[in-house]
Amino acid sequence: MSINQNIIEKIVKIFLWIFTIITIFILFYIVGFILKNGIGGLSKEFFMEFPKSMGREGGIFPIIIGTILLTLAAVFIAGPLGIGTAVYLTEYTRENRITQMIRFGADCLAGIPSIVFGLFGFVLFVIKLKMGWSIISGGLTLSIMILPTIIRTSEEAIKAVPKPLREVSYSLGGTKWQTIVFIVIPQALPGILTGIILSIGRCVGETAAVIFTAGSSLRLPNSLFDSVRTMSVHFYILSREGISLKNAYATASVLIISIGMINFLSYWIMHRFIRRIEGK
């Protein structure tokens, strides 16, 4: 009996080990493949110069700026909205039909494919509200897309703030709003930031929703109503239309490295957050 069980244990262990190796191999293969093809194209000029002849030559400077601007627009719109909703849901309501519906709605929103958001943003912001292909149209569309993430992570972070801390604030004459501003939000901030950083990652990596709403202009934008191209969109166009595979891979490398950095940052903040909850 025990010999059989030992064999089963060993087989299970070997299989799990193989699964892990496969997963890690795929991950490293993709990242390695892109970096191998792309890292040769990275240079100071690639970061600092404008693209020439549709991106065949030159760098991706306006595209990096476009990516940053679009992401900032999305975060600045979705951040206050999402945090506000989370505060309302956790602090101002008790669990009932309406909060459940809001939460259900947010979860559904999280599951919708991004191209649907793109189409929606195109119809509403670009056409109906006449904002055109622009940072503002793209930012609004992306903000709707990342809203659920921000709401849920903020909600969890706010819920994790211990009740005694709030009661201390109340007992010292704090109003509800003062307690939220001075105690709850600061305490929940690392968790809220983690959600925002994850959202930034999603914005940077998004293609479908962006191409429909922010367009694909190669110029540096002058205002929020100008079209921009993000790195994901640039990569898509370069490779899809066979313009320059070399520059496509170089762009993808920049994309992967920046997303890696963003994830690293969020991991670091999360780590600090957990340590703080556990009382260092």
Binding site: P162, L165, E167, V168, S169, S171, G173, G174, T175, F182
Partner: peptide
């Protein structure tokens, strides 16, 4: 009517900041 709880819960701030939390809100 000041209240002191069974479990001492200092705010995660300095000693000074803990004391002036209430007065400053006032």
């Amino acid at each position: 009517i000041g209240m002191v709880f069974a479990q001492p819960v200092p705010l995660p701030r300095s000693i000074y900041e803990n004391i002036i939390y209430g007065p400053r809100l006032a």
